[in-house]
Design a protein around this nucleic acid. Structure first.
Lengths: 277, 277
DNA sequence: TAGTGGTCTAGACCACGTC
DNA sequence: ACGTGGTCTAGACCACTAC
């Protein structure tokens, strides 16, 4: 194919072999040295080719372990509304946030932890409205479908005044809990939420938890809950997902202004290079 | 800092110097050889450090030109509703899609082009409901604020039957146009839309157009318009933006089911590891 | 044509996971 | 301790941009 760079060419060939099913998802590729011999290239060059396949999400290379073929082709298309629903399925007053994935139950890939932690991320600290470095109640989980690599990292930061109002949230089991319900009941009803979505590169730690290369982008969703009592942030929850494992679907609706087919039957140019991302 | 790898260490130092304002956005960094001498490392090692800074969005390295400091710190936070509005600001019946950026007028960074093109992207072809390789009317633009690097690539594919119904869209100026209005008027009112958002790595060509490294992820929004006449796709528009230049904001609303503060005052665990991305 | 970043090699050594 | 991927070097050559 591309006669450009040797390493891109080799990446192309190995990619084709992966897509052709030569190695099953979860299994290991040949070693760098083997590939080097196969393609008559230097091991370092093979390493660069593998780096490309990593950033594309095809493989996950780990020191000391090998190059693992990722479970590809499973980009989940997740319809996202913007409605928060009650989730009484389990007989308790939890919330179900935007998603239409049904009710699969996910497992915890590592034991969930909950407890006070210094909040060092300035971005989260600002959203929660606390000084950087404060001790803040944190709930941390890594979840995903059974028999698959972890799907998402899930970190909630609970504002100190919420903990003061509903002290039981600190002693709650670190697993799933109705802590949002507790906080609302303690005087913060109704909490209102907004979400911020962005793509970024993962930290080394995040990549390890999600079993992805550090060169594969992640989707980060930060949900900010604001207290109904004082209008100030009461909790911030961060979701981190491998970028190649999701796409979000949004159904658009017509505003009042767009209900009339032929508003005034004018002719002339319009400009929709404006105000549109 | 990190005494791990030499190149990560150097990347860290150069990053700090960029953030410290040692080089203005848009200006060039020293050459690889200069850095190599400064840090007493091999040029190749410096190259790896620069590659890190590229994937983080700090710099844009171009062969033969140099290493350019990107205009950082300007992640635009764009509130996104899901409402499509009429845009009569310019005196014509255009649409304004979700965004609340106001009415800045953007310039075209390269001349917009419009015309029939073979649709080779299987993903877009499938969404538009045409065979891969079909000749399809395409509108292509690269736009952004004045005096800044390009912000987004914007490609619309118009289904052949829409062109048959509204032939004037092919002869329209390649710039902004009221082609959606024309198509609706030709019998496809009302078009309904949905959007698919995902993060992915850019192609070489996309990276060049957006003036970003190929290692920096992009946000891709694909909007699919469905004809009100036959319920089939009538147009597909693809937006591509540098991942570090936007984040989208979504305000969540309470469903009917979530209006009651204390639904039945039960105790017990809930599980919100379910149905949530 | 000169200048600059990109690629490639051979060989050495390091770092991490596993045994 | 071993095996694997990761990093680093010196030096050569290639590819793209600008003049």
């Amino acid at each position: 194919m591309a006669v450009h760079s040797r390493y891109l060419d080799i990446a192309h060939q190995i990619r084709a072999r992966i897509e052709g099913g030569e190695w099953a998802p979860g299994s290991k590729l040949p070693r760098l040295d083997d590939f080097a011999k196969q393609y008559g290239a230097n091991r370092d060059t093979i390493g660069r080719a593998i780096a490309v396949l990593e950033s594309e999400g095809f493989v996950w290379a780990v020191q000391g372990r090998g190059i693992i073929v990722r479970h590809g082709l499973m980009r989940l298309r997740r319809p996202r509304g913007n409605l928060v629903k009650r989730n009484l399925a389990t007989g308790s007053p939890g919330y179900s946030f935007p998603s239409a994935t049904g009710q699969e139950v996910w497992k915890h890939h590592i034991p969930p932890v909950a407890g006070p932690e210094p909040l060092t991320d300035p971005r989260i600290a600002k959203l929660l409205g606390v000084p950087v470095g404060s001790e803040v109640m944190r709930r941390f989980r890594v979840t995903g479908p059974e028999s698959e690599p972890p799907f998402q990292i899930n970190i909630s930061w609970i504002h100190p005044r919420a903990v003061a109002d509903a002290p039981e949230v600190v002693s709650q089991a670190p697993g799933p809990g109705d802590w949002l319900y507790r906080i609302e009941k303690a005087g913060h009803w109704p909490i209102s939420w907004m979400e911020i979505h962005r793509a970024r590169m993962p930290t080394k730690r995040e990549a390890g938890l999600l079993e992805i290369p550090t060169s594969l982008p992640v989707l980060e969703i930060v949900r900010v809950g604001t207290s109904g009592r004082d209008g100030q942030p009461i909790e911030v929850t961060e979701y981190i997902v491998a970028g190649d494992r999701v796409e979000t679907v949004h159904v658009l609706h017509r505003d009042e202004s767009a209900q009339d087919p032929w508003p005034e039957d004018v002719e002339g140019p319009s400009d929709n290079s404006t105000g549109r991302i």
